[in-house]
Amino acid sequence: MNTDLTVFERTLTLHRFPKLPNETLQAWDAGDEYLIRHIEDQQLSDNQNILILNDHFGALSCWFSLKHHVTALSDSFVAQQGAKANLAHNQCHDVTLLKSTAPWPEKPDLILMQIPRNNRYLSWQLDSIRHLYGSGCPVIAVNKAKEIHTSTLKLFEKYLGTTTTSLAWKKHRLVFSQADCSQAGDDAISDATESDAIEAAKIDPYTRWSVDDHGLTLANLPNVYSGESLDLGARLLLQHLPSDDRYQQILDLGCGNGVLSLKLMQLNPQAHVTSVDESYMAVKSVQTNVELNQLDPAHLNAVANNCLDNFEADSQDLVVCNPPFHQQQAITDHIAWQMFCDAKQVLRSKGELLVIGNRHLGYDKKLSRLFGRSGVKLVASNAKFVILQAIK
């Protein structure tokens, strides 16, 4: 696996986060390299203020920090930890790392973007660019050519304005856009000052909907998984969440919008629930939803983290987990494995791990390796999902 990105006789050593002993995936892709080559070919003058959106593991931040003032905004705790490690390892100049939920910086000279998978998140970012910065701030985005659909370009045109694309290079394509349209979304915006643009109306970042069967109302920020409806796995798991006074410490690992956390708080009012996700928007959504559903915020702790790094061992009575199977653009099962290992570490003796997953993922085999065959049982299933319980 290659860890050295070399462009124009300059080399960066880059690693994904967390570093795995038998890593097979690079910490950058051809899209990062295409953006770097394009900007360098333009001979951009030094000391530009560059805003980088969705930098995967810091490749863009590391490269452009040499000659420019870089701010990198990301919704991913894992990506930011990777960026921090790579910036330090390559002895780069300081970069301002911002959470997706933080205020955006003052008007940059240039915005570079790795186009996110989630169109709701992309729309929100494009709308924010238009209303915060107005015209005169060029945007250059990149993604795999096969992922840049006509609908993707229409979003750039809708929220920013004039949009063109490059030729494909190593199966990636650049998107060039300028915030020069007369409106963003449905909200008209005139040739205003920067402060006027900041105050202009924007699309609501929250999507709101109800889970009527469980008496819950959810508000989801744009990059939260399954942000417009309840995913089928969570719907099944909601029906099988336990209620018992012996649960004093409950952990919802990979919490998303917090729907499982909310139901666990309803079923176990005596318990303290910790909600963990690597998405800053997920963490913020959980906090919002606890208040929205009039649950006691003193019984909830929502944190952004890489699985359960630095959590106290033997501290939890119940861990509930709906694992993802991708990191950034890459499909991988190492996250589920790390979640299961971390869950076992933090569970007390006789503590329980409750997992839901697609049938074909074979989580029963992974859990049996950790907890023993006798410690794993099937709780429920349907045509697509299984719910498994593992006891420490």
Rank of each mutant, 00 (worst) to 15 (best):
L14E: 01
N22I: 14
E23L: 12
E23A: 07
W28T: 11
A30E: 05
Q42S: 14
D46K: 15
Q48C: 12
Q48K: 14
N49W: 07
H56G: 15
F64Y: 05
V70D: 02
V78D: 03
A79G: 13
N86F: 01
A88I: 06
Q91F: 12
H93S: 12
L97T: 11
P105R: 01
M113V: 02
H131R: 00
G134H: 06
S135C: 14
A141C: 03
K144M: 11
K144F: 13
K144P: 02
K146F: 10
T150V: 10
L153E: 04
K170D: 05
Q178G: 09
A188I: 14
Y206R: 11
A219S: 03
N223F: 04
G233Y: 09
L237Q: 01
L251R: 02
K263S: 14
V273M: 02
S275A: 10
S275P: 09
D277C: 03
D277W: 00
M281S: 00
M281E: 02
A282V: 01
S285V: 05
T288K: 13
Q294D: 15
Q294V: 10
D296A: 04
N301I: 09
N306G: 11
N310S: 14
D314A: 07
D317C: 08
F325D: 08
Q329P: 14
D333T: 07
M339G: 05
C341E: 15
Q345R: 13
N358V: 06
D364K: 15
S368P: 13
F371Q: 01
G375Q: 05
S381I: 07
A383M: 11
F385E: 01
